[in-house]
């Protein structure tokens, strides 16, 4: 008698409905970020919609990479960044690079960060947001080949820090809903 072998197909398989449900749960954060990019680039007359978009994206990539990396895999981050660059007037690939760096930092430090309380996470995010803004400013300078006014980068860093509590509250509520098992 041949020795017992582990057969992957003998695992309990999910039904199609369950698999679709799982896929939707994994794709939803990226999808919402995509919608945010499209809506914020439409002329809604909101003050500072153009300035709001990069901090919003940095914040949501950070949040999801920290608390639910399966909802924001690197490939989605990359595609979101490229999409942002294609819609906007930024040099192609800059947003993708910055968002991937934020994602990498958040997912490498997540086991340390998850134990900290909210205020400390906010401080860490403030540092990351400021670094991302400075990097974006530096890359913009490199591609235009002359030094730009650093005021927008400063403003972006402040917006990053300011928007995080609100973003975190909304996303936490959303995460809670996603975690809640469907009523059966």
């Amino acid at each position: 008698m041949p020795p017992m072998q582990w057969d992957p197909s003998s695992e309990p398989q999910d039904t199609l409905g369950q698999r679709l449900d799982n896929a939707a749960r994994h794709l939803l954060p990226s999808f919402i970020a995509l919608l945010a990019i499209i809506v914020l680039s439409a002329p809604l007359g909101l003050p500072g919609a153009a300035e709001l978009l990069p901090p919003l994206m940095i914040g949501s990539v950070f949040f999801w990479s920290l608390w639910r990396p399966s909802g924001m895999p690197p490939l989605n981050v990359f595609l979101l960044g490229i999409f942002m660059d294609l819609i906007g007037f930024t040099p192609l690939g800059v947003s993708a690079f910055i968002l991937l760096l934020v994602h990498g930092l958040a997912s490498y430090t997540r086991f340390g960060l998850m134990r900290l309380n909210f205020l400390l996470v906010w401080c860490v995010f403030g540092l990351i947001g400021a670094a991302a803004s400075v990097l974006q400013w530096a890359l913009a300078c490199v591609f235009r080949l002359h030094a730009l006014d650093p005021a927008p980068a400063f403003f972006e860093a402040l917006l990053c820090i300011g928007i995080y509590p609100l973003l975190s509250a909304v996303s936490s509520w959303f995460l809670h809903i996603l975690d809640g098992k469907p009523a059966s």
Binding site: L75, G81, D85, G93, G104
Partner: peptide, 18 residues
């Protein structure tokens, strides 16, 4: 390896875009 590969790819996209 996915994250470093994508980072390299985005740098490549930056250069290719220029």
């Amino acid at each position: 390896l996915v994250l470093p590969a994508l980072l390299l790819l985005s740098v490549g996209v930056m250069i290719a875009g220029q």
